[in-house]
Design a protein around this nucleic acid. Structure first.
Length: 228
DNA sequence: CCCCAGGGACATT
DNA sequence: AATGTCCATGGG
């Protein structure tokens, strides 16, 4: 994995290939119409969603976001002002609701303490409830900073496609050293990898035979040679 | 019944 | 640094 040109070349090809296969994913999903109507900030929805989706399917997050719209407001101001008991009921469908309610409060306080300033990654990581992935999600999708997001899907794909296992920071460096700091590309690439992992590079038995990257994937070719 | 989901905190080794 | 455990709802 030492050849930088090889890395950037293959990653670029992977990106274009996934984009062609799946089309634009347009992450992070935000209800623009709602925010226009209510005078709230789409930024808040990204931050709230980033906490709610921790180890949770997006379907369950959507249920919670709907509750926010129905019984309160989808804003950090509401998160800050609402009683813990009220907030907890709205978070419930997203699971881990006691933790996540606490995390939402902590994150809202932190965001307000910034007074509009864009936080450093290290600052975000000090906040309770913000780990590495959530920090990168907030930087990339809420603040539009070129911070590449890694998750379990990405690590699994790296392991199979290149045959090497990286930790979070190692994988992050790999992408950021291989790609220009391009916010729209970072956003789209992460979403595309997740789509690939959900549909083809699955946790159980991967569907290598019909994978859009089957030609260049190390694991896929090994499976082919083994005949299964 | 099982496993999994757009993680993170905390304890243990 | 690496690993284990807990958190919790909802779908397959």
């Amino acid at each position: 994995m030492g050849d930088r040109n090889f890395q950037s070349g293959i990653l670029r090809l992977v990106y274009l290939s996934l984009l062609k296969h799946f089309g634009y994913q347009n992450w992070w999903p935000v209800d623009w119409e709602y925010h226009k109507r209510k005078g709230t900030n789409p930024f808040d929805e990204v931050v709230i969603g980033a906490i709610l989706t921790q180890n949770t399917s997006w379907k369950n997050v959507e249920k919670s976001l709907k509750e926010f719209k129905r019984k309160g407001k989808l804003s950090l101001k509401f998160v800050k002002e609402a009683p813990y008991e009220v907030l907890q009921e709205l978070v419930k469908p997203a699971g881990f609701y006691r933790q996540k309610t606490l995390y939402l409060k902590e994150v809202a306080d932190f965001i307000f303490s910034l007074k509009g300033r864009i936080p450093k990654r290290e600052e975000l990581l000090k906040v309770r409830g913000i780990g590495r992935e959530t920090a990168d999600v907030i930087l990339l999708y809420a603040y539009n900073q070129p911070s590449f997001v890694i998750d379990r899907y990405t690590l699994r794909w790296l392991q199979r496609f290149f045959g090497f296992s990286a930790d979070y920071e190692g994988a992050k460096r790999f992408f950021e050293n291989s790609l220009r700091p391009n916010v729209p590309v970072y956003k789209e690439f992460h979403a595309l990898i997740d789509e690939l992992a959900k549909r083809y590079c699955t946790k159980g038995k991967p569907k290598c035979e019909i994978c859009p990257l089957k030609g260049s994937c190390k694991e896929g070719n090994l499976r082919k040679e083994r005949g299964g």
